[in-house]
């Protein structure tokens, strides 16, 4: 069908934005869970949990939007990724369940509180790892025939995806610790300051591995980056610059900048990843155009998005504003 503008392209942008929102927002609250076992004491854990309790549900809603949005705009992605990652998706969901209920139950628990600490930590870490493995699986590509996934149950689980999984765990922990710098004070903040540079080193190490490894296994990616030196090299450069800012800001004990710069680090690496694969959305066979849903459906939803998403962003911002400022261990609920 002839369209006055490229709906599929617009949708690629929207879904890309939605996933980015999810990664940034749920990233810092998953990060609290990943760091939970390492917290020096129960007081720190209370602060960590309270700092995200009012917003985690909204953050996770971006994941649901990512799922539903993919079904709406790129059904092929939905119907290939989910069967291919079947076991991983289960782990992801189980992780999200445990950490989700831990928010409610830990507040109400007394003697069993340590159990919910573990549920929160374990659930968050497993969920983050599974998401990182999804990224790795996307880079690897999927075995498909006639628009249907035909590979096995554990094709996605390779040394490479284990590395990307661990990388995202470190990345979310970094988002979590810089968030904590911003939202806490005193002893808790000191701890977060100490942690941040180490986490950053871990993240950079995974970056290095992925960047070296990917072009070797994927000729498409190799030619994208090395055939002609183009503007996309700007993206990793900017990511490195963000990393540098984080180091410096932590040293100067800046409170807000480490978090902002970490977000920058995520955004630029994410864009670099997309640029490597563009326009393939179900690699190695299908592009965004092969995966797209019917134009009338894309249009129907687009109208709603244009109208509703700004409102969503506005009241989401408002709730962050209501809960602005430093968090104490008590006083909530």
């Amino acid at each position: 069908m002839e369209q006055p503008f490229d709906l599929t392209l617009i949708w690629a942008g929207i879904i890309g934005f939605g996933i980015m929102m999810y990664v940034l927002m749920d990233g810092f609250d998953l990060g609290q869970g990943i760091l939970f076992p390492f917290a020096p004491n129960e007081h720190t854990r209370d602060v960590m949990m309270n700092s995200v309790a009012p917003v985690w549900d909204g953050n996770e809603t971006w994941l649901v939007l990512g799922g539903a949005g993919l079904l709406a705009a790129f059904p092929l992605v939905y119907s290939v990724f989910l069967p291919a990652l079947y076991i991983g998706v289960f782990l992801l969901l189980a992780g999200l369940i445990f950490r989700g209920v831990a928010f409610e139950f830990r507040f109400k628990a007394k003697t069993s509180r340590y159990l919910w600490n573990w549920a929160f930590a374990g659930g968050s870490t497993v969920a983050a790892f599974a998401q990182g493995a999804v990224v790795g699986a996307y880079i690897q590509g999927f075995k498909t025939e006639n628009l249907v996934y035909v590979g096995g149950a554990l094709d996605w689980l390779t040394p490479f995806t284990v590395i990307t999984g661990a990388g995202l765990v470190a990345g979310y922990a970094l988002l979590g610790s810089t968030w904590l710098i911003m939202k806490s004070e005193g002893e808790v903040q000191d701890w977060a300051y100490k942690l941040t540079p180490r986490l950053l080193l871990g993240v950079l190490a995974v970056f290095a591995i992925v960047s070296v490894y990917t072009p070797f296994v994927d000729p498409f990616v190799k030619s994208r980056w090395f055939d002609s030196v183009s503007l996309i090299w700007l993206l990793p450069a900017l990511a490195m610059y963000c990393a540098f800012i984080i180091f410096r800001a932590v040293k100067k004990r800046d409170e807000g900048l480490p978090f902002v710069a970490t977000m920058g680090l995520f955004v630029f690496s994410y864009l670099a990843l997309l640029a490597s694969k563009w326009p393939y959305i179900v690699p190695p066979n299908y592009t965004i155009y092969d995966a797209a849903s019917a134009p009338e459906s894309q249009l129907f939803l687009l109208l709603g998005f244009l109208f509703v998403i700004p409102i969503v962003l506005a009241y989401t911002a408002w709730t962050y504003w209501v809960f602005r400022g430093k968090v104490k261990a008590t006083g909530y609920h």
């Binding site: 809603t61 539903a68 949005g69 079904l71 709406a72 459906s297 939803l301 709603g304 509703v308």
Partner: peptide
């Protein structure tokens, strides 16, 4: 897809 997405937003 659109219906579930509308539900989310």
């Amino acid at each position: 897809g659109p219906v579930l997405s509308y539900e989310v937003i």
